[in-house]
């Protein structure tokens, strides 16, 4: 493991020891959160199921605009009071994205929470219908930080900033293949998340993301080569299970 990564983890563990005073374990009884950077004090698992909807820019994708919602399943696994593993599956069947990453959660006070994490993602897609004989896959890395604010009215507001790095890309059309293992900075995503009780003790998550990337995995089949960052708005709606 690189020295830098060891230093970061050691620092986060030190935070873990000294931040116990800020714990608000009664919070769990009333709230459940997926986007909100709230530690998992009592449960081992926390999950949500929902949909994301992406808007692609018309001047680039023209009439081939993606209008198919993407399934979104998240599964958080507690490690200790301040560390979780965030697992996520986004699925459209013809193209899918899996990610997992370690997240550090830090309650700053009873209202403000902070997290930092690093996820690794793998996407893959197949398109074998009339005129297409394509497949693609790739690896991405997503360092991220989040800041949460719990209101007096139990609304959880979180702001999440994430950058991404393309680590590997592979695509094939019939017998024609290309791959690239050159890693590069891919862009940034800013998300605002709102979470609150919704129905029958269920909690609802609403996420609005501004994705500004060179490459976004849901557009792999368009094979559009550009060094311009493209802006994709995305909405996420999920029920915490």
């Amino acid at each position: 493991m690189p020295r830098f990564a060891r230093t970061v983890i050691f620092t986060l563990l030190c935070f873990d020891l000294f931040s116990a005073a800020a714990q608000d374990t009664s919070f769990y009884a009333k709230h459940a959160a997926i986007l909100f950077p709230y530690p998992m004090y009592r449960e081992k698992w926390r999950s949500s199921l929902g949909l994301t909807l992406l808007t692609t820019p018309q001047d680039i994708t023209e009439e081939v605009r993606l209008r198919i919602p993407c399934g979104d399943f998240r599964l958080l696994r507690r490690i200790n009071d301040h560390f979780i593993i965030d697992n996520r599956v986004m699925f459209q069947f013809l193209q899918n994205h899996l990610s997992t990453g370690l997240h550090f959660m830090l309650p700053v006070n009873k209202h403000i929470y902070f997290s930092a994490g690093d996820d690794i993602g793998y996407w893959f897609g197949y398109l074998k219908i009339s005129g297409f004989n394509s497949q693609g896959s790739g690896w991405l890395n997503y360092p991220n930080v989040a800041l949460g604010y719990k209101t007096k009215n139990n609304l959880l507001i979180s702001l999440r900033a994430q950058v991404s790095f393309n680590l590997y890309y592979k695509a094939a059309n019939g017998d024609n293949k290309l791959s690239s293992s050159t890693s590069y900075y891919n862009g940034e995503t800013f998300t605002i998340g709102l979470e609150q009780p919704f129905y029958n003790k269920r909690h609802l998550t609403l996420g609005l993301s501004a994705i500004n990337n060179y490459f976004y995995w849901q557009t792999w089949s368009l094979f559009y080569k550009t060094n311009r960052k493209i802006f994709y708005p995305q909405i996420t709606v999920a029920l915490i299970l």
Binding site: T55, I157, L194, A210
Partner: peptide, 21 residues
């Protein structure tokens, strides 16, 4: 609670902006 509705409203306005190249 109502005051927080302004957050998604602002975000929706933000999304309605198209980046011009």
């Amino acid at each position: 609670m109502k005051k927080y509705f302004i957050i998604p409203v602002f975000f929706c306005l933000f999304f309605s902006c198209q980046k011009k190249y």
